[in-house]
Amino acid sequence: MALRMLYHKAMGFAAKQYRTVLGNQLAQYGLRYEDLLNEDQKEVKEALEHADPDVLTARTRRLKRAIDLSFKRKSLQTYAPDMELDIFKREIYPDIMKIRARDNEYAQLNAHKSQ
């Protein structure tokens, strides 16, 4: 029990540190965490198909801006130092979770067919 508590405390500390470092790296290019999701995954592709056009436009612009900044070896802070970024905002992730839950439910309901 004590070992488990120590493990969870250590992992929580490591997770906070990783989130901070990742957030700083994403902020350099003006990206959000959701922009890193692989579009080739079935759930992500479907969530993006059903997403609001404004969400897709913003995602595309962030990705293009990040590519441009990376090519120029610049940081977003150079061009827009006062820009407010919400790096871990979730816009499509709830839809991805709903799609996964739906697919899991469908697989469980049709599990008898595979036997």
Score class of each variant (00 low, 15 high):
Met1Leu: 10
Met1Ala: 13
Leu3Ala: 14
Leu3Arg: 11
Leu3Ile: 15
Leu6Cys: 11
His8Val: 12
His8Ala: 15
Lys9Tyr: 15
Lys9Asp: 14
Ala10Leu: 15
Ala10Met: 09
Ala10Trp: 12
Met11His: 13
Met11Pro: 04
Gly12Pro: 07
Ala14Arg: 06
Ala14Met: 10
Ala14Ile: 10
Lys16Tyr: 05
Tyr18Glu: 08
Tyr18Ala: 13
Tyr18Ser: 08
Arg19Ile: 07
Val21Gly: 02
Leu22Val: 14
Gly23Ser: 03
Gly23Trp: 04
Asn24Thr: 06
Asn24Leu: 06
Asn24Asp: 07
Ala27Thr: 03
Ala27Phe: 01
Gln28Glu: 13
Tyr29His: 08
Gly30Asp: 00
Arg32Met: 08
Arg32Ile: 01
Tyr33Leu: 11
Tyr33Asp: 05
Glu34Asp: 03
Asp35Pro: 04
Leu36Tyr: 02
Leu36Gly: 02
Leu37Trp: 02
Leu37Asn: 01
Asn38His: 02
Glu39Ile: 05
Asp40Thr: 09
Gln41Ala: 03
Glu43Met: 00
Val44Asp: 00
Glu46Pro: 01
Glu46His: 06
Glu46Met: 06
Ala47Phe: 01
Ala47Arg: 00
Leu48Thr: 00
His50Met: 05
His50Tyr: 03
Asp52Met: 04
Pro53Tyr: 00
Pro53Ile: 00
Asp54Trp: 02
Asp54Tyr: 00
Val55Ala: 07
Val55Gly: 00
Val55Gln: 03
Leu56Gly: 02
Thr57Gln: 02
Thr57Lys: 02
Arg59Ser: 03
Arg59Asp: 00
Thr60Val: 07
Thr60Phe: 05
Thr60Cys: 04
Thr60Ala: 14
Arg61Tyr: 02
Leu63Trp: 00
Leu63Glu: 03
Leu63Lys: 12
Arg65Asn: 12
Ala66Lys: 08
Asp68Glu: 15
Asp68Ile: 05
Lys72Asp: 13
Arg73Val: 14
Lys74Ala: 15
Leu76Met: 10
Gln77Asn: 06
Gln77Tyr: 07
Gln77Glu: 12
Thr78Asn: 09
Thr78Ala: 13
Tyr79Pro: 05
Tyr79Gln: 07
Tyr79Asp: 13
Ala80Met: 09
Ala80Arg: 13
Ala80Leu: 13
Met83Leu: 15
Met83Ala: 12
Glu84Met: 11
Leu85Ile: 13
Asp86Phe: 13
Phe88Lys: 10
Lys89Trp: 02
Arg90Gln: 15
Glu91Val: 05
Ile92Ala: 03
Ile92Arg: 04
Pro94Asp: 06
Ile96Cys: 04
Ile96Tyr: 04
Met97Gly: 00
Met97Asn: 05
Ile99Thr: 01
Ile99His: 03
Arg100Met: 12
Ala101Thr: 10
Asp103Phe: 09
Asn104Gln: 14
Glu105Phe: 06
Glu105Tyr: 11
Glu105Lys: 10
Ala107Ser: 11
Ala107Ile: 10
Gln108Ile: 08
Gln108His: 10
Leu109Thr: 07
Leu109Gly: 06
Asn110Leu: 10
Lys113Phe: 14
Lys113Arg: 12
Ser114Ala: 08
Ser114Asp: 13
Ser114Ile: 10
Gln115Gly: 12
